[in-house]
């Protein structure tokens, strides 16, 4: 009996140690089946580690000054803060706010309008966009092939020195898929190791009543494209999903974002028009028309009392995953710093 207890202790110790080391424990059991299999962390997987280097390297842009991380900052849950519209090469201003990156394995398509149907293809969009990275896969491959640093990294990863589009894109995708965030207070409560406060319980009920249809648990998005009745910004006239599907009913629909890590991912909406969470709640409380004759997906304004609003926000804050945001596994890799200093 004693030896069994010792064995159990060691097993539990290694499980906990592994989870802490990688910062990437197995996702909780209450999640749906992901669309993509999850790679392990950069510390234990060479492809993810290579993808992490590429993700943070400015070599991806035409002028070697913009990286993926320029608009997807790990300390902001890989979102782009402080700017309504994200900016890229030569200070070009884009048309949307870069979305946060986490739990991507549970997404069936990507970008605000779902223009990318597979994660391996996603990086091609910013790479080629003249307002984002202003480069091309051919140009990037040429740079990587002439870099002794990357020749070695690719060799170490794939056991040969071939550098091609597929490997670059799959490495980036592997790193992005490794970015998972299910370590919030909400998750601890779901796992039975923490309790909500009375205020959070009250907020949870309000959330369930008013928000959960679109921001569905446990991912806090239903993954659909919805029209949330935003007035059209005439300076952009961004028709969202319609640009991809060409279907009239998709005009002004955008991908419902996850509410996880919402304290870190401001400003909000596809065009970053709302700087604060209160602005968002003000919008949903308003019965203002959207300025055209379209039918939106909101049933009615969500009118909350001052106290109810405070309760709802208290619950929403339990969706922040601080350990994820400050997880060094996901941040700028030390190896790349050395490379940049040598270049």
């Amino acid at each position: 009996m004693y030896s069994r207890r010792v064995l159990l202790f060691f097993v539990l110790f290694f499980l906990v140690a592994f989870a802490v080391k990688t910062g990437n424990p197995n996702p909780p059991s209450y999640l749906p089946t992901p669309y993509y299999s999850l790679p392990v962390s950069p510390e234990t997987n060479d492809t993810v580690a290579l993808g992490r280097l590429l993700f943070y390297d400015n070599i991806l842009s035409g002028n070697n000054q913009v990286s993926c991380a320029s608009c997807h900052n790990s300390y902001n849950a890989f979102a782009h803060t402080d700017h309504q519209l994200s900016h890229g090469i030569f200070d070009s201003i884009g048309t949307r706010n870069a979305p946060a990156l986490f739990n991507l394995a549970w997404k069936k398509d990507f970008m605000w309008d779902g223009a990318t149907h597979h994660i391996d293809a996603q990086a091609l969009a910013p790479l080629h966009d003249p307002k984002e990275m202003g480069s091309s896969m051919e140009e990037l491959l040429s740079k990587l092939r002439s870099s002794s640093f990357y020749r070695e990294e690719f060799f170490n990863t794939y056991q040969d020195s071939l550098i091609n589009s597929r490997r670059v894109l799959q490495a980036l995708a592997a790193f992005e898929l490794s970015i998972i965030s299910f370590d919030s207070k909400y998750d601890s409560v779901k796992e039975g190791v923490a309790d909500f406060t009375h205020q959070e319980v009250s907020g949870y009920k309000l959330f369930d009543q008013h928000c959960s249809k679109c921001h569905t648990e446990p991912l806090f998005t239903n993954g659909e494209f919805m029209d949330n009745n935003l007035p059209v910004d005439s300076s952009l006239d961004d028709k969202g999903r319609f640009l991809v599907s060409k279907q009239k009913e998709d005009r002004y629909k955008f991908k419902v974002p996850s509410l996880r890590n919402l304290s870190y991912t401001y400003p909000y909406m596809h065009d970053g028009r709302f700087a604060k969470l209160h602005d968002v709640l003000d919008h949903y409380a308003s019965d203002e028309q959207n300025g055209c004759d379209r039918k939106n997906d909101l049933e009615k304004p969500i009118v909350l009392s001052f106290n109810e609003r405070a309760d709802l926000i208290a619950f929403l804050l339990t969706l922040n995953d601080d350990r994820f945001v400050f997880n060094p596994t996901y941040s700028f890799p030390e190896k790349l710093k050395n490379k940049l200093l040598e270049d």
Binding site: A115, H118, I119, D120, A121, L124, A125, L127, H128, D129, S136, M137, E138, L141, N164, S165, R166, L169, Q170, A173
Partner: peptide, 17 residues
């Protein structure tokens, strides 16, 4: 996802946007 050889996106036959 992305293919190799004839399906490599550098062949100019893959939409990026």
């Amino acid at each position: 996802g992305i293919g190799e050889g004839p399906l490599d996106p550098i062949r100019g036959m893959y939409w990026t946007w």
